[in-house]
């Protein structure tokens, strides 16, 4: 475990050096949050039918999205690994005494954690202090909060395992642009980043539930506000676990296949 803590510490140090970047990031996230809330507020203000999500729940949803964006955004990627694959230095990595999947997984996880540490807390703290209707609500109960934490961690693990496929695809395409773009657009949409899942038409909600993306962001954030009640949250956690296991096994399998090809090519 120790190397991974070093990665986190290194990234934190790196992030702290660039204070301007950190402040700028927080400010940007705030702007987007406000904008989304204002748009939704405008839609909510004259509606006749009862929306599937109250404005309060939606506000919490938006702030959580903004706070954990660096944790959960698919386009947040590691160029080092891309270079490693495309420039053929992968051979060095194969000499290390660690399994490649685990090594990269830990590296990606550490990077996301470190980046999020610097951004999440300032955003969340300020979001709790904002005037209504922008203020972030507290979770309805402590158990809900615990559920949220577990769901968030599982969501992050699922996300990293999805992002692993981007790196694996680079073995075949030799350029990350395509897969980043495709997975980025599709993943963002079905994780509820553009339109919260509950506001989608029902057929699309079904589709979203069949894909893994929803379980990274949408699910934990709705658990937080209690929009998904605790008795249903249980089931969700199980679904998350199943996705995680499936994605990791599939990812390992694909990586082994891809590496096999590299060795045959003599790369």
């Amino acid at each position: 475990m120790k190397p991974y803590f070093s990665v986190i510490k290194l990234r934190l140090l790196y992030g702290l050096q660039y204070r301007g970047a950190a402040f700028a990031g927080v400010a940007t996230q705030f702007f987007w949050g406000f904008m989304y809330i204002m748009i939704f507020e405008a839609f909510y203000s004259h509606t006749h039918t009862e929306p599937p999500m109250t404005l309060n729940e939606l506000v919490a949803y938006v702030w959580l999205q903004q706070a954990f964006l660096t944790l959960m955004a698919l386009w947040f990627s590691d160029n080092e690994i891309f270079d490693l694959i495309t420039k053929g230095n992968i051979a060095y990595e194969l000499c290390r005494p660690c399994e490649l999947y685990g090594l990269w997984y830990a590296k990606l996880l550490a990077q996301r954690l470190a980046a999020a540490l610097l951004r999440s807390f300032p955003i969340l703290i300020i979001a709790f202090l904002l005037p209504q209707p922008y203020r972030m609500m507290l979770p309805p109960s402590l158990t809900t909060f615990l559920f949220f934490l577990i769901a968030l961690v599982l969501g992050l693990l699922i996300l990293v395992s999805i992002s692993m496929f981007i790196y694996i695809s680079v073995f075949i395409t030799m350029s990350p642009t395509g897969s980043l773009l495709m997975l980025g657009v599709v993943g963002e949409f079905f994780a509820g980043l553009i339109l919260p899942i509950p506001l989608m038409p029902s057929w699309m909600q079904v589709l979203a539930s069949c894909l893994p993306f929803r379980w990274t962001m949408d699910f934990p954030f709705r658990v937080y506000s209690g929009q998904i009640p605790e008795d249903q949250a249980w089931i969700g956690l199980v679904v998350q676990l199943v996705w995680l296991v499936v994605l990791v096994i599939l990812g390992r399998f694909c990586l082994r296949k891809a590496l096999g090809k590299v060795v045959v090519q003599g790369g």
């Binding site: 839609f43 509606t47 929306p51 599709v186 963002e188 553009i194 339109l195 506001l199 989608m200 038409p201």
Partner: peptide, 13 residues
């Protein structure tokens, strides 16, 4: 996808 989001919002509201 942004446009789709817009479309679905109007479909609902």
């Amino acid at each position: 996808s942004v446009f789709a989001g817009l479309y679905f919002l109007f479909a609902r509201f």
